[in-house]
């Protein structure tokens, strides 16, 4: 059924250069309706530029974008009610309360004041309705900003680093909001520089660096494709490194001040061997993550 419908977003080989700097250097991707798509990468990778070209806020030097079958550039007023955008820097009217922000943004789309205020509940800000925007915490501001992007019930939602600069608790609260939005059947395109977060939230991710997409797939598929060893970590002294290396399937065993780290591509037999010996003190198992994928793709450690 989904196969017959047109994709929500189609991006074909877009480029944007600022002088010698290739901010976006030939990016293509497709997002299906209802999909949660993440664009990941370190700061300066070109995520915002890509997103804003897709939203129709910037003009690409070349390439094509189609949103719900329409071209977003030049400003396409037919398309605008169907997309919701949260810009990287949150944009609010001065001195207005959370409720008034929503009502004002809603009115730009012909949404009634009562309906606009309903959005507060989705993002858990009902008790902050009468607080001025500049008196909200960082996480509350981000949630309000997302509510403003959703106020007119758009089909596609673009969120640019909604979780940046938030403390872990606020980030988790926001994840719940994002999942709730997806549950409403929205297509979400979002950017982040937290790879771990994208791994948890996204159906599919595109890893970007220096204006290019290096890899694109479901996070689990990307990690599996890496064929990276699993790290089994034990408390130091549980087992001598030499004994660990003797276990079948162990590729490497290294000890530092606190722990012994065993690398293996066959974690199941190694773990049962360890269990047989009763040497599982302080056991931690670390599988590869998107950070390892990034390291593999770029040859350098991921640093946001």
């Amino acid at each position: 059924m989904t196969g017959a419908r047109i994709p929500a977003v189609v991006v074909a080989d877009i480029r944007k250069h600022y002088g010698d700097l290739k901010a976006v250097d030939g990016v293509s991707f497709t997002v299906a309706e209802g999909e949660f798509f993440g664009i990941l990468g370190p700061n300066g990778a070109g995520k915002t530029t890509t997103l804003e070209i897709v939203e129709g806020l910037r003009k690409a030097d070349s390439g094509a974008v189609t949103l719900l079958g329409e071209n977003p550039w030049p400003r396409n007023t037919k398309l605008l009610p169907r997309i919701g955008v949260q810009l990287q820097a949150s944009s609010f009217f001065e001195k207005l309360t959370a409720k008034e922000q929503l009502q004002t943004f809603g009115s730009l789309y012909g949404v009634t004041a009562a309906k606009a205020v309903d959005m507060l509940e989705l993002v858990g800000l009902t008790d902050k309705a009468d607080v001025q925007e500049n008196k909200l915490s960082g996480g509350q501001r981000q949630r309000l900003s997302i509510a403003c992007a959703l106020v007119h019930d758009p089909d596609i939602v673009f969120l640019d680093e909604p979780t940046a600069a938030l403390d872990p608790q606020a980030r988790r609260n926001l994840w719940d909001v994002l999942r709730a939005i997806q549950a409403r059947g929205k297509t979400i395109v979002y950017t982040t520089h937290y790879l771990d977060e994208a791994e948890i939230l996204c159906d599919r991710v595109a890893i970007m660096d220096k204006g290019r997409i290096l890899a694109m797939d479901a996070p689990a598929t990307l990690v599996r494709g890496l064929d990276a060893p699993t790290h089994v970590v034990l408390q130091k002294g549980t087992l001598a490194p030499a004994d660990a290396r003797a276990i079948d399937g162990v590729e490497q065993a290294q000890e530092d001040e606190v722990s012994l780290t065993i690398s293996t591509r066959k974690p199941a037999p190694v773990l049962s061997a360890l269990a047989e010996r009763g040497t599982l003190d302080g056991l931690q198992v670390r599988t590869a993550t998107l950070e390892d994928v990034f390291l593999d793709l770029t040859g350098r450690e991921y640093r946001a």
């Binding site: 129709g56 806020l57 400003r75 007023t77 605008l80 955008v85 810009l87 009217f93 943004f105 789309y109």
Partner: peptide, 9 residues
Amino acid sequence: VLRRIRLAP
């Protein structure tokens, strides 16, 4: 805010 308004119809 201007860019945000521009994204509204």
